[in-house]
Amino acid sequence: MANKLKISLSPHVHGGDSVKRNMLWVIIAMLPALLWSFYTFGLGAVIVTFTSVVSCVLFEWAINKFILRNPRNTIADCSAVVTGLLLAFNLPSNLPLYIIIVGALFAIGVGKMTFGGLGNNPFNPALVGRVFLLISFPVKMTSWPVPHQMTAYADAVTAATPLADLGNANLGDLFFGHIGGSMGEVSALLLLAGFVILLCAKVISWHIPISIFASAFCFSVIFYAIRGGMPFADICVLSLKHLCAGGIMLGAIFMATDYVTSPMTHKGMLIYGVLIGFLVICIRLFGNYPEGMSFAILIMNAFVPLINNACKPKRFAKEVKK
């Protein structure tokens, strides 16, 4: 026996899971929607995705190296790639490069590294970046290119979001993704495919997405019913359109489930999901913005510590009364 024996406390084996594995599965789960966005928006989508991912990784590397002086650079865990992809998913495909870079800097620099990097950020970095851009460049961020302009980038013809006129949109188009919108959010079907991948890889549990879908659908039905003037079947169809249009799918599956900024217990996850669903419908129906997913998630991110405090996991046994 040549080497010294190692001494440590148990357990002496590890399940082999790693941050990188989880991040890679998230990336794989995003691929169907990403490829669809390439197909739908063409060259613009490729440029936006590439810029966003590269600048996110570069900013994380640079901040780690020059500001935090972290000896162990964290870009290897691929979390910056995920943030970059998510940011790109939230942008229109004709956004100028400098805006994307500013968004990436804000997402990584302010949203993530200010708090100490991976694991410490209270808000989802990609959403922080997106909301920052939405407030800073409201016009550019809300004019989405019309689909199928394969070679167009900055010169693409734009249109309003289907959310502005949901009553006339076709549910099938919304579901399969023959519409305009932010890059990643157009095809509900492919986002759901990503959800299945994440579930199968045991990266996330079903609690957050399902509770968001259920709650958004229910509250939408309730609010439309209170407003009245529509048969119940139409209300249901309209509510389904709400789920498929805009960012609810994308947000519920990929953004709200972000490990760092979501609650730790299943009960907490359900509360978090229900409240996100409620908020997003409130913003969509009563707010100024046609879309409210980013705001709903960010608002609930702020409540996560409270939820964690309030929702303890189900203990094995009740405490003995003293």
Binding site: R72, T74, G117, L118, G119, N120, Y259, P263, T265
Partner: peptide, 27 residues
């Protein structure tokens, strides 16, 4: 020697897998 070492420690990403795995329902 290879099995005996521990993997490199990374920051907690609050994935809650430990909460799910705990048989006593702890955090």
């Amino acid at each position: 020697e290879k099995e005996a070492g521990r993997g490199e420690e990374a920051p907690c990403i609050r994935c809650s897998k430990c909460v799910t795995a705990c048989p006593m329902g702890l955090e």
